[in-house]
Design a protein around this nucleic acid. Structure first.
Length: 485
RNA sequence: GCGGAAUUAGUCUAGCUCGGUAUGACGUCAGCUUCCCAAGUUGAAGGUCGUGGGUUCAAAUCCCGCAUUCCGCACCA
């Protein structure tokens, strides 16, 4: 199914919808999760915790969304996260100043240079608008961070443009109190904020969005000293360097030197295993090895985890080897010590980052799971049972003869443990269809036989097949079928 | 941010050319019916037609601004 089908499902079934939609001054790039969306998101994150955080023995924190100016001076976001832009006086088109100047005059001005340098170059080389030959206004800086004023004096602070800065600044304390040893993983889930010029496509480019970030602190001289590598050495990952992506085991990726070391390969491996369990079609995924020009300003080596969807390849995760960029700049700015002991040697750890876009991941799960079952005239969200917003529908076959009461009783029994949905109204087939559309893997139906022998029928979403089971077995059957893998 | 198109109920949509406060479908709710896959039947709720202004006796309809959405461009750690 395509983007529009997913959008329709999201709007009709409460996965997500535009923020503040009753007001006409609602801004672009802000979306809300409805009940189904939140339920999916929570379950997705539980899977993430199981497959990455607990599996690797990482620690999770929850930092502030507003952070002080110094943090972003040290991180480089105040300098590098801002682009010098020039605007044409005549046609109002906006361009990147540094790129436009270098294309037309071959003059290379670093993007962090003083704004006057750009204006000078434009005058000297008589640079005009590439579109309409008009003159440019003075160069301005466009920073993607949202500035906020703290307290009555409105002191300068920023909404974080990525969650990981708290992890870096908290690292010295966390390493001490959690009795840290390298490699040391810290994770965080939360919102980040970027003032995108043009937000697009609902969850795919937001101004306020969720990230699940992992920063693994490591000793740069021991990147091939990874015991856990054997766990994933035969896991198949798909890597693209410059041509088509091709599949290889993690072991082969190391031997061919496509992935620089076992440490990075280990995390690419467990990340792939995680995404496989979300139900995303892993044969439509790739780790794209980024070239020099594409990499972020802090990255030494970078792999983007991308998945193919009906609107093209989507970047779901950025995996960056950030070296000691972050810790050394925070150390310098804060005068705090960030070195730690590893095997009796003092080291400033390097960082490998796994920065996941949650919203995009959820969209991709929905798109890859949504099917049009033409034979049975239904839309089915064939999502993994443990990720489904609703685990089980509880239905009375008809309302009369005490079936409604018996149904309510069974619903009460299970609703605290499972995400159950009670439904008495309308034809039974219609109720099954509704459950199919939000991905409920099971429906149990209470009929006249239930009153006689305490059995119910259980219907499976994908096969539509039904079995009769004892009410006393219900709990264990559901528990087993809905368990995380 | 630039250019183009669009915006009518939960969703899709008719009406706009040629001005007279809105059509249909699906969905939703309640009843009847119904012992298993969107059936039938009787009712009901839900829209100041994105928003602000203008023209007019009268605007969903004509004109202008803005917002949002989609498509391109640009941007995108």
């Amino acid at each position: 199914m395509n983007y529009e089908d997913v959008m329709k499902l999201a709007l009709e079934r409460g996965f997500y919808f535009p923020s503040c939609e009753v007001y006409s001054d609602a801004q672009a790039g802000f979306w809300e999760y409805g009940p189904s969306g939140v339920s999916l998101k929570n379950k997705f994150l539980e899977l993430w915790r199981r497959e990455l955080i607990r599996r690797d023995g990482m620690f999770e924190i929850d930092g502030s969304q507003i952070m002080s100016k110094s943090v972003f001076e040290a991180s480089g976001h105040l300098g590098s996260f801002a682009d010098p832009i020039i605007k044409c006086k005549k046609c109002k088109s906006t361009f990147r100043a540094d790129r436009t100047i270098s294309e037309i005059s071959n003059m290379e001005i670093p993007e962090s240079a003083d704004l006057i340098e750009f204006d000078k170059a434009i005058l000297q080389s008589n640079i005009k608008c590439p579109k309409c030959k008009g003159d440019f206004e003075n160069t301005k800086k466009f920073n993607m961070m949202f500035r906020v004023g703290i307290g009555p004096e409105e002191e300068e602070a920023y909404l974080r443009p990525e969650t990981c800065q708290s992890i870096f600044v908290d690292f010295p304390r966390l390493f001490k109190i959690m009795r840290g040893k390298l490699p040391f993983g810290i994770a965080q889930v939360g919102k980040s904020f970027r003032n995108e010029i043009s937000p697009r496509q609902s969850l795919l480019r937001l101004r306020e969005f969720y990230q699940a970030e992992i920063e693994v602190f490591c000793n740069p001289s021991r990147l091939n000293d990874v015991e856990k590598f054997s766990e994933i050495q035969n896991t198949i990952i798909r890597i693209q360097t410059d041509s088509e992506p091709f599949a290889m085991t993690c072991k082969e990726a190391i031997e061919s030197e496509i992935v620089p070391n076992k440490f990075v390969a280990y995390y690419l491996g467990i990340l792939t295993e995680f995404y496989e369990k979300t139900g995303i079609d892993i044969t439509k995924s790739r780790f794209r090895k980024l070239g020099e020009k594409e990499k972020a300003f802090y990255a030494e080596a970078a792999f983007d985890f991308e998945v193919e969807t009906t609107i093209g390849w989507l970047e779901l995760v950025a995996c960056n080897y950030r070296s000691d960029y972050d810790l050394s700049s925070h150390a310098e700015k804060s005068k705090e010590k960030f070195e730690v002991m590893d095997n009796d040697k003092k080291v400033l750890p390097h960082v490998f980052e796994i920065s996941m876009g949650i919203d995009r991941s959820l969209y991709t799960i929905l798109e890859h799971s949504l099917n049009d079952d033409k034979e049975h005239e239904r839309i089915v969200l064939s999502i993994k049972p443990y990720l489904s917003p609703i685990h089980v529908g509880v239905l009375s076959l008809i309302k009369k003869d005490g079936l409604k009461e018996k149904t309510d009783e069974i619903y009460l029994q299970i609703k605290r443990k499972f995400d159950a949905f009670l439904d008495h109204s309308g034809a039974i087939g219609r109720r099954y269809r509704r459950l199919d559309e939000i991905g409920a893997p099971f429906a149990i139906t209470i009929d006249h036989e239930t009153l006689k022998d305490d059995t119910v029928t259980i219907r499976k979403r994908d096969s539509m097949e039904q079995n009769r089971i004892k009410i006393s077995e219900l709990d264990s059957i559901l528990t087993e079928s809905l368990a995380y893998p």
